[in-house]
């Protein structure tokens, strides 16, 4: 699976402090550790730490790239901040993220094509986040259609159907598995599916257990990617093991080690 590492985010207090103090070391330490833990992308999010989000995004991208070649996920709700991140980044990035309204897609899809980036699109429209399965799938389908119009390869399009905290709406995780299955029928090849996994366990005890149990279920239902805590070794073991059980990796007695070493070398 595609593991997007979540820790370089100004919402975390250690990162916020580093941003305020302009101290690259905690950021770089996180970049290194997350890369070594098998991150496919390092998410970079300015959070609420600074007023000048553009220059902070640029700085975060630069200091991260000083210590690792792991591709970056440029995470902001503001197009200008995303652009600043993409400008500073080397190599192909993930844009995280864009809302599902046509006028938003018209801005972000050409940007993704221009920058050779992959694009996360949320199933949000003018009415906000839909509560039911059908509406989410409907928005996903309109996103896929728009991407096809522009010629964005479906493997570079990641639909985020938006995972709520478990304790906000406990019916939702099971419904979400059905959303994953239906999104896979939209096109052939299908778009990829991504969620913010840690959202699910917000405010619960046993966060790691909740995350990894849902991850195994979600991967079986078609999930391809997650913004997640790659420093949680148990969680990463589940990701590797689920890929193996789903026959995406060939089994060997050392399959955990093999997957990690392949990641690091790749």
């Amino acid at each position: 699976m595609i593991a997007v590492a979540e820790r370089i985010n100004g919402m975390f207090s250690d990162v916020k402090k580093a941003i305020i103090n302009h101290d690259p070391r905690p950021i770089q330490e996180l970049a290194r550790r997350q890369s070594e833990s098998g991150a496919s992308y390092l998410d970079v999010n300015v959070g609420t730490a600074a007023s000048d989000q553009l220059s902070v995004m640029k700085w975060l991208v630069e200091v991260t790239q000083e210590v690792t070649d792991t591709p970056l996920s440029i995470d902001s709700q503001k197009l200008e901040v995303v652009k600043a991140g993409l400008e500073a980044a080397k190599g192909a990035c993930l844009i995280n993220s864009c809302k599902g309204q046509p006028e938003e897609l018209d801005k972000y899809i050409p940007l993704a094509l221009e920058k050779n980036a992959s694009l996360v699109c949320l199933t949000i429209d003018k009415q906000g986040i839909p509560q039911d399965i059908d509406k989410r799938v409907e928005i996903a389908a309109s996103i896929v259609a728009k991407a096809a119009e522009y010629g964005l390869d479906p493997t570079r399009l990641l639909i985020d159907p938006i995972l709520f905290p478990l304790n906000v709406d406990q019916k939702q995780p099971a419904l979400m598995l059905e959303v994953f299955r239906q999104i896979k029928y939209i096109s052939d090849p299908p778009p990829r599916i991504i969620v913010g996994l840690s959202n699910l366990s917000q405010g619960t005890k046993e966060r790691s257990l909740v995350n990894r149990t849902f991850l195994a279920m979600a991967l079986a239902a078609g999930l391809d990617a997650a913004v997640m805590d790659v420093l949680d070794e148990n969680l990463m073991n589940v990701a590797i093991c689920a890929d193996m059980i789903l026959n995406k990796q060939i089994y060997s007695d050392s399959f955990l080690k093999a997957a990690r070493r392949a990641e690091i070398k790749a």
């Binding site: 060939i250 089994y251 060997s252 007695d253 050392s254 080690k257 093999a258």
Partner: peptide, 11 residues
Amino acid sequence: DVNIQKQVNIL
């Protein structure tokens, strides 16, 4: 045996 083949290569 593809599983053992992979394992020997890892070893």
